[in-house]
Write a protein that binds this DNA or RNA. Structure first.
Lengths: 231, 231
DNA sequence: GCTCCCCTCTCTGTATACAAGAGATGGACA
DNA sequence: TGTCCATCTCTTGTATACAGAGAGGGGAGC
């Protein structure tokens, strides 16, 4: 399994082993190979990546501060087992943060940025109509990132990215919902229209509603699954 | 200088050396003993705290992820030298985040929390009238933290704390401004009134304005100092 | 005299060895 | 048979040793 590092896409020149390990574990969490609650044993990880425990520890620390992993002194690290009420709170914040991004984007996006956003949106329409779920999901993410970048506020983007990363492990449950893709597209439509028109409040409202709806879907999913801790 | 760790206030049972070092460096940054741009040499720090480089490295990593320190692979760590435009962006986000906290607080604070907030506010009034600047500053921080806690949204509080930590090194410039304390108190007054009355939008507006004013003061300070990078 | 290249030296990144705490396990006693 | 305590083991935290990358200085060439 030590080929994992070599397989890492981001072979940055200056990157350290710790960075590579972090990316690999991050991906494992995102893709569900490492599920919330899973113990991260330093020694096993060291063997898996064929390196010493030192860079493993650094990688885990980075993940702890990204909120993806929890760690108690002398008691090891586990993939963050999100409590339901905390997830709802995170979605709540996410809706405000993304709404804020949209508001700023409506005011600050250049004409080029607006056209790029429009193109992304059109691409997603094609994927929707072709029922290409994975592709739609990918473009959906790019769409949100474009709006975040359009805010022209780096700290805000960092916050949005951080929240997205922490919610990502759970997001895969969402687009399975029947007709969700079509609704999602319609909501995006409102956002794009408001941003292109340069209407900050409409953009804020549209984006905030779009993300808020995800909370409903998520809680619905959870109520079906039962339990107040998702593992 | 190795007594620094022993002198640490938070002698938590489970805390590691790395945590203690992090707290110590954090305090140095907040109090201006370590100024933005200062190089953090692992070996010197290890000698200063009389421990090995390993926990020092972990502490630095934690500070990097808190945004207080910047680090390039193989080129060491420096206390984050904030660019002016980034600082303004951070204040911009901070005003929205704190406004959001106030909005939620107006809806969600219990009667006990509201009374505690009122008491804090009364205390700060006493300090203002007695012209006790440091005491006012301390209570001011407690006031903001109380509102944040009143939001009953942990991720939101974490974001607010993170931004506060990153802005703290520069905040000391602010309350020196003539009559700032009195204005600050008046603005707090509006916030308290709105929260006690349970008026979310008024609370949001009042808090947002309170923080936004700090941007003006800050940019004024910078324009006096000149330069677009603060060291 | 200036510039460019190479060497050296310092500091970071990684490996490995050691220490210490937390949980598990087994035995003894009630 | 159940519970409590001691010990033991396993994992994490820390120290130290080693390796390798960058930066800086000195010398050679132009």
């Amino acid at each position: 399994m030590s080929d994992r590092i070599a397989a890492s896409k981001t072979a940055d020149k200056g990157a350290t082993r710790a960075d590579e390990v972090r990316l690999a574990i991050e991906e494992d969490i995102f893709l569900g190979r490492l599920r919330p609650g899973t113990r991260l044993d330093e020694e096993s990880l060291a063997q898996r990546f064929n390196i010493s425990r030192t860079p493993i520890r650094e990688a885990i620390l980075q993940l702890v501060h990204a909120g993806l992993v929890e760690k108690q002194p002398r008691q090891g690290a586990v993939v963050a087992p999100l409590k339901l009420h905390r997830m709802v709170q995170m979605f709540e914040v996410m809706s405000e943060i993304e709404g804020l991004c949209a508001r700023y984007a409506a005011r600050r996006m250049s004409e080029e940025e607006k056209q790029a956003l429009k193109r992304l949106h059109d691409t997603s329409k094609a994927h929707m109509e072709a029922r290409e779920l994975d592709a739609y999901y990918a473009v959906n993410r790019a769409f949100h990132e474009a709006v975040q970048a359009g805010s022209h506020n780096e700290p805000l983007q960092e916050i949005a990215r951080g929240l997205f990363a922490r919610l990502a492990p759970y997001r895969r449950y969402q687009l399975n919902h029947p007709s969700r893709v079509k609704d999602s597209f319609t909501e995006h439509d409102d956002v794009v229209e408001a941003i292109l028109a340069g209407d900050p409040e409409a953009a804020y409202t549209a984006m905030r509603r779009h993300v808020t709806i995800q909370i409903d879907i998520f809680t619905e999913f959870v109520s079906i699954m039962g339990g107040n801790e998702i593992q």
